[in-house]
Design a protein around this nucleic acid. Structure first.
Length: 113
DNA sequence: CTTGTGACGCATC
DNA sequence: AGATGCGCCACAA
């Protein structure tokens, strides 16, 4: 997939856009019923230490095109607040993801990249 | 250029 | 379990 450059202003592709692209693909690679932490997604995409960038992406994209619900905090904890957290939890349960109280059973659902 | 803030992560208390 | 502190990166003011 190398013929998809040219975006942003005047055909330039920023590094952040490249990372976002990698993050998106990585998130999409998480199969149904599996989950991964922000840090794991970042590392799997080839950018360790960029976990915060992953969080920022998910927040900004506000996507219906990514399985955002499969991205959790380290330890399988949902890092959202209020209704959003409830929704994520519901969507995960619909996929068959089981919870141990407040957190996901990573032993069963953590995705290996 | 410096600060503050954030869907974060990890060690420590 | 909840609170703090430090590290990390991006971005707005």
């Amino acid at each position: 997939m190398a013929a998809r450059c040219r975006r942003g202003t005047a055909g330039t592709v920023t590094l952040s856009e490249i990372r976002d692209e990698a993050f998106e693909q990585t998130i999409r690679s998480i199969p149904r019923g599996k989950v991964a932490s922000y840090g794991r997604v970042a590392a799997a995409a080839g950018y360790p230490r960029y976990h915060r960038a992953v969080a920022r992406l998910l927040k900004t994209m506000i996507p219906g095109r990514l399985p955002w619900q499969r991205v959790l905090g380290a330890g399988g904890e949902i890092k959202l607040r209020g209704t959003a957290a409830a929704e994520q939890r519901l969507r995960l349960k619909m996929e068959g993801v089981t919870f141990a109280g407040k957190r996901v059973n990573l032993r069963l659902h953590e995705h290996e990249f």
